[in-house]
Simulated assay, not measured.
Amino acid sequence: MTASDARRPVQLEIAVQDAAGARIAFEAGADRVELCQALAETGGLTPSAGAVEAVLAVAGRAERLAVLVRPRPGGYVYDADEIAVVAADVREVVRRGAGAVVVGALDAAGGIDTEALSRWIDAAAGAEVVFHRAIDTLSAPVDAIDQLVALGIRRVLTSGGATRSIDGLGTVEALVRGSAGRVQIMPGGGVRVEDVPAFVSSGADAVHLSARRSSGDTAPSGPGGGASGFDVTDGAIVAAARAALDEATSGS
């Protein structure tokens, strides 16, 4: 780590699914939360309006809340109806007070769907727009940075194309170099506490993790089926990540 890396602000973002998770995350030292639903089952979908309002009440300030807007699981190529739904959800999430929305779309050729993104950025009406891990499906993600910057994307969430982002560290570093400070690069995807120093050294602007554990609930899930229990935010993991981040950025 260089002297310029030391004391460089790097934010800690925690993916949460409810107000309880947000409260735990902030109390343990998170700078920001990303709200979604069905994280373990789908990788995250658009949360309800009620969840957005409840988490914003916990966050207290718009810039502490980013909201995932993803209409369904699966790939990132969306039809006209889905693009319209995302635009409406983005508009509503921002109206309710979120400081950022997290979106992503690809075209049929596997490139960035600039038309969809432009529409969603317009719907965000000045709120931050984050491009999510759809970037990890691109064959040359670094080449997409100029395009994302031109569109007005403020932050990119990436695993570096790997299942666990620490295994994509080289690509994360390349994205940081390619961004040259024009857009924030935030590694996320299977992040563990011990990975944090490497991401700080990479030049990343933030680190994103879910810090989840099982609720331990074994009650029947109901006549519709599905697994028992659910994930909750683990404050001990958040606190350990905060400590690791503070140590790495202090240069000690």
Rank of each mutant, 00 (worst) to 15 (best):
R133Y: 09
A140S: 13
A134Q: 09
V156T: 12
S165A: 15
D146K: 04
T163Y: 05
D167Q: 12
S159N: 11
P141N: 12
A134P: 09
V149F: 06
V149T: 13
D146Y: 00
D136E: 13
G168Y: 05
L138F: 09
I153S: 01
R155D: 10
G152W: 15
D167T: 00
L151K: 02
I153V: 09
V156S: 05
L148P: 04
G161Q: 11
A134R: 08
A150C: 09
I135R: 11
I145F: 00
R164Q: 11
R154W: 03
S139G: 10
R133T: 14
I135S: 01
I166W: 07
L148E: 07
A134D: 11
A140N: 15
S139I: 14
L157S: 08
Q147K: 12
R155I: 02
D136H: 04
G160Q: 03
V156E: 04
P141V: 02
G160L: 07
L157V: 06
A134V: 15
R164L: 07
L138D: 10
H132C: 09
L138V: 11
V156H: 06
I153G: 02
P141Q: 15
I166Q: 08
L148A: 07
P141R: 07
G160K: 02
R133C: 07
S139R: 10
I166T: 08
T163V: 15
A150M: 10
G161L: 05
I166H: 02
I153R: 01
A144Q: 03
